[in-house]
Amino acid sequence: MEAFFTTFLLTAITQAGDRAQLLCAALGQRFDRPVPLSIGVILASGAMAAIGALGGVAVGTWISLDALRLFYALSLLFAGLGMLAPRRAVDTLPGWRTGPVLTGLLGLFILQFGDKGQFIIAATAARNHDWVWPLVGGWAGMVVGLVPAIVWQAKLADWPIRSVRLGAGVVITLIGAALALGAFGLV
């Protein structure tokens, strides 16, 4: 269960103000059909979590325990630094002539492939030698971080996202750095 809670919390927090969340809000305004768009986002999030979890378990069988510790530490370190870095503008996919389910599914899948949430899921799965709980936790965290943006769209601007993003980015970066130093035996 620790793997579930870790991946849930980290993937939900790392979505705050991220490009994926902004894309979901923009697509929510564009389509004004939250249920079909949410279905596409939920399917894309599930696919991303599955790829991360299964890839993490595969990697976890190939590398040593020390390397697993470093992999987990680096996933957190880079996720935290990614939250502190300036964001690029989001392509709202205006030329796509697909409906909300397919646009949400493909748009989010393309944007999130190899993103920090997927690496956190992979690192947690590798560290725990279990793909189920990291997959479920990461998937739930992505859904909790993204679907409200579809529903609340413009109200997202009223949320203290910048503060949450900066605060969480600092905390996650520090935890990742401490774990990385520990993996090298320096702490």
Rank of each mutant, 00 (worst) to 15 (best):
T7Y: 07
A53D: 01
A178D: 15
S38G: 08
D158V: 03
W133S: 07
A123T: 03
D66S: 15
L37Q: 04
W133N: 11
W62N: 10
L174E: 13
H129S: 14
R33V: 02
T92H: 10
T124E: 04
L54V: 12
A154T: 13
T61R: 15
L27R: 00
I42W: 04
L76V: 05
L27S: 00
I13P: 00
F71T: 01
M83S: 00
Q153S: 14
A73S: 04
I120C: 04
L76M: 11
R165Y: 02
V136A: 07
V164D: 04
D18E: 14
L68K: 03
V57H: 02
A177Q: 03
R165I: 06
G80S: 08
L102M: 13
G40Q: 08
I42C: 05
G182M: 09
S38N: 11
G95F: 10
G138R: 04
W159G: 01
F109Y: 10
A177F: 09
W159C: 07
M142W: 14
L77R: 00
A12P: 07
F4Y: 09
A73T: 05
G107V: 04
Q29M: 10
S163K: 14
R97D: 11
Q21S: 09
T11C: 10
L9T: 15
G80N: 07
I110A: 13
G46N: 06
E2Y: 14
N128Y: 15
A16I: 09
R69F: 08
E2I: 13
W131L: 01
W131H: 02
W152Y: 15
G141E: 03
S38P: 04
E2F: 10
L179N: 05
F71H: 01
R165T: 06
A125P: 00
S75P: 00
R87Y: 06
P160N: 11
T61V: 13
L105N: 01
R33Y: 08
L84N: 08
L54K: 07
I51F: 11
R30N: 10
W133A: 06
A154W: 13
A58L: 14
T7N: 10
R19C: 04
L105Y: 08
A123C: 04
S163W: 14
P36I: 08
Q118K: 07
A79E: 00
W131E: 01
I110W: 11
M48W: 07
T61A: 14
T92R: 08
V147D: 02
H129R: 11
A58S: 12
L105T: 05
L65R: 12
A47L: 15
Q15H: 12
T173C: 13
L111C: 07
F109M: 13
L23R: 01
S45R: 02
L156D: 09
G176P: 01
V147T: 03
D158Y: 12
L106I: 13
A140D: 06
F119D: 00
E2T: 14
D115E: 15
A44S: 11
I150C: 02
M1T: 12
L105A: 09
G95L: 11
L10Y: 04
L181K: 12
K116C: 07
G107C: 05
A85I: 12
I42V: 14
G117H: 05
P100T: 12
L74C: 10
S64E: 11
